[in-house]
Design a protein around this nucleic acid. Structure first.
Lengths: 158, 158
DNA sequence: GTGATTGCAAACCTTTTGCACGCCA
DNA sequence: TGGCGTGCAAAAGGTTTGCAATCAC
């Protein structure tokens, strides 16, 4: 059972808002348009800075609440992380993540075998599983030898 | 290539500290002893409150820095989460996690099939992979029907 | 003795909350 | 028009930093 999807993302977005009794405001449209194709798993602050360029009067607060709202209605996902600022993922198709522990970069991983993992029956019985993902942690290709690593210590969110 | 492990966890701990030129202080010992067998994936604050009972003069700060240090030398793991306080996992054997999106509870999942996932060759080439884990999100068995769910809204960290 | 570690306090950053105004339906 | 959404400001929550005193080695 899948929602009907047109080829117009904005129309789908508006339909989803209506479905959840959310009003369609210029701010929400701008935020939706901006995050829709992002591959960078942006934080609220990343999004705020981007949106502000085209919509200078928007408040940080609205961006924050809007992204939270979007994640509640399944328009974006909250990305798993290890304690830094919250980050969002517009790609709701099943996929997986690599996290760089040095710079916080998150790289999408598409791996058919991972998609096909079964949920253990005992868990399915106890819990309602909504989402599964393989998370890989490591050091990304922007950090090389030990010497280079040291010089890059301050890099953030690659 | 594995480090020799005795059957004495405290001795192993001290060896690991020496290996990394860390001094063995009463605070570190207390924190190590306390987290060693925790199944609850405690936050810094959880640990601070526990440690303080047996070591009243310890500061929050020391607990925080010690746990961070422990995670750097591989004595505990940082748990993936979605924005709340950082949480730690003393179990460094390969295992997986279920996260309850309603109360933040994290349940260990042991599933042999998950342990055997291969890292895609293309990723192995680009990145140094240090850890892999399957993360399941959903709603745990402490939340039942809609009505019960509402009454449990404030529950935290199961 | 000496350098690492601790406890404390302040600073910092992110997220949450309360409220009045304004806009969408 | 009515209620949701926005912007602002303050508060809250968690983490980080700087420093002087203390402790492990």
């Amino acid at each position: 059972m899948q929602n009907p999807k047109s080829t117009d993302p904005l129309a789908d977005f508006m339909a989803k808002c209506k479905q959840h009794q959310l009003k369609i405001t210029p701010q929400r449209i701008a935020i939706f348009k901006e995050i829709r194709t992002s591959k960078a798993h942006p934080s609220v602050d990343d999004m705020y800075r981007t949106i502000k360029k085209q919509f200078p009067s928007v408040s940080f607060d609205t961006v924050n609440r809007t992204l939270l709202t979007f994640s509640e209605i399944g328009l974006v996902d909250l990305v798993e992380g290890q304690g830094g600022p919250r980050r969002f993922d517009p790609n709701r198709a099943e996929h997986h993540h690599f996290h760089c522990i040095k710079c916080g970069r998150i790289v999408d991983v598409f791996e058919k075998g991972y998609d096909e993992l079964e949920i253990p029956a005992s868990l399915k019985k106890r819990f309602k599983i909504l989402n599964k993902r393989v998370v890989l942690n490591g050091i990304c290709d922007r950090h090389g030898t030990k010497r280079q690593t040291d010089s890059l210590k301050g890099e953030k969110y690659g």
